[in-house]
Simulated scan of single mutants.
Amino acid sequence: MNSKHFYYLMLILILIFFSSGIVLAQDNIPKVNKSCLTCHQREGFSTKHDGKEISLTVDPAVLADSV
Results as ranks from 00 to 15, higher is better:
13 L>W: 12
55 S>I: 00
6 F>V: 05
43 E>L: 06
44 G>E: 03
22 I>K: 10
7 Y>M: 02
66 S>P: 05
35 S>I: 04
53 E>I: 08
60 P>A: 02
59 D>C: 07
6 F>E: 06
24 L>C: 09
17 F>A: 15
2 N>R: 07
43 E>Y: 00
1 M>I: 03
20 S>C: 13
23 V>N: 11
46 S>Q: 10
42 R>N: 10
48 K>C: 00
37 L>P: 13
64 A>E: 14
67 V>S: 07
46 S>T: 10
47 T>L: 01
5 H>N: 04
58 V>K: 06
51 G>D: 06
26 Q>K: 13
61 A>C: 02
55 S>Q: 02
6 F>S: 07
15 L>K: 12
17 F>W: 14
4 K>D: 02
26 Q>L: 10
59 D>Q: 06
1 M>K: 00
24 L>R: 12
47 T>W: 00
2 N>T: 01
30 P>V: 05
45 F>V: 10
37 L>F: 07
60 P>N: 06
3 S>A: 06
34 K>L: 09
7 Y>W: 06
56 L>V: 08
28 N>L: 12
5 H>W: 01
58 V>T: 08
14 I>G: 13
57 T>I: 00
29 I>G: 01
49 H>Y: 09
57 T>S: 03
38 T>A: 12
49 H>E: 02
43 E>W: 00
54 I>T: 03
66 S>T: 15
20 S>L: 14
61 A>M: 06
41 Q>N: 10
10 M>N: 06
30 P>G: 11
64 A>Y: 09
1 M>W: 01
19 S>W: 14
22 I>W: 14
38 T>P: 03
31 K>D: 04
16 I>E: 15
14 I>C: 15
49 H>Q: 04
25 A>L: 08
19 S>D: 09
29 I>H: 02
41 Q>R: 15
24 L>M: 12
46 S>G: 02
43 E>D: 13
14 I>A: 15
19 S>G: 07
14 I>T: 15
15 L>Y: 11
38 T>L: 09
36 C>M: 15
53 E>R: 01
23 V>P: 08
19 S>V: 15
2 N>M: 07
63 L>Q: 11
1 M>E: 00
45 F>Y: 09
10 M>Q: 09
21 G>Q: 15
44 G>H: 03
23 V>K: 12
54 I>L: 06
3 S>Y: 09
55 S>V: 01
44 G>S: 06
5 H>E: 07
67 V>W: 04
33 N>I: 04
32 V>C: 01
18 F>Y: 14
10 M>E: 09
34 K>T: 10
49 H>V: 15
53 E>M: 04
18 F>M: 15
6 F>W: 02
55 S>N: 03
40 H>M: 08
65 D>V: 03
48 K>G: 03
9 L>E: 07
30 P>L: 12
50 D>K: 09
3 S>N: 05
53 E>A: 04
67 V>C: 00
41 Q>S: 14
57 T>W: 01
3 S>G: 00
50 D>W: 02
25 A>Q: 10
48 K>F: 06
17 F>I: 10
15 L>P: 05
22 I>P: 02
31 K>P: 00
64 A>W: 05
1 M>R: 00
